[in-house]
């Protein structure tokens, strides 16, 4: 077995190659399901916004399938934070996904974070706050004993008159309110 190549930081100067504004909208070619926004801010250990992070989203479709046979919705998104550390995705809420040993995983989007100062990426998950019953039964959420840590993975939903619902998911790299990051 060969040893996997070591990770290095994305650094601050990736935008010419990696910034693809269109990729923030996973629904840009159309998709079945309720359109929603996921938005948030990336913070460092001083609660200072991180203006040079890159985030990627990977999720199932409304049926909980990752095969994306539809061809228009690929389940993949990419966003860069702005000067205020903010990012957004437009997407749909995925369906529940099969887990290990016949378990069902609550709807979730997989999120990875790259930034200057991160020598390797961070991985986390976004769960959807209005899916409370499914979240309670989710194997990963259930494995996190500390309720405050578990809560960092659950994005509350806000309705907006005349607009699409928004799920708010902040990423706190360090310290108070630090996001639960995953080893996968």
């Amino acid at each position: 077995m060969a040893i996997p190549t070591s990770s290095q930081t994305i650094g601050p100067f990736f935008r010419a190659a990696l910034e693809r504004p269109a990729w923030s909208d996973l629904t840009r070619e159309g998709v079945a399901g309720e359109g929603v926004r996921i938005e948030g801010t990336v913070y460092d250990g001083d609660r200072t916004p991180v203006p040079d992070a890159l985030l990627e989203l990977w999720q199932a479709d409304a049926n909980g399938s990752y095969t994306h046979a539809d061809g228009r919705f690929r389940g993949f998104g990419r966003a860069c934070t702005d000067h205020d550390g903010r990012f957004w995705f437009r997407t749909i809420v995925p369906g529940p996904v099969p887990g290990a040993n016949g378990a069902v995983q609550a709807p979730h989007a997989n999120l990875t974070i790259f930034a200057r100062g991160l020598l390797k990426r961070l991985v986390t998950r976004i769960y959807f706050g209005d899916h409370a019953e499914e979240n309670v039964r989710d194997p990963l959420l259930a494995s996190i004993e500390d309720a405050a840590v578990r809560a960092t993975l659950i994005a509350p939903r806000t309705e907006h008159a005349g607009g699409i619902p928004v799920y708010t998911f902040d990423v706190v790299l360090q310290g108070a309110g630090e996001t639960a990051f995953l080893a996968i």
């Binding site: 200072t48 290990a100 995983q105 194997p139 310290g175 630090e178 995953l182 080893a183």
Partner: peptide
């Protein structure tokens, strides 16, 4: 690498078994 000082998580990563999502 000084940029890591305020940007590294302090809590241990949570071991997440690989599922279809990963």
């Amino acid at each position: 690498y000084t940029s890591t000082i305020k940007r590294h998580p302090k809590r241990a990563l949570i071991e997440a078994p690989q599922t279809l999502s990963e």
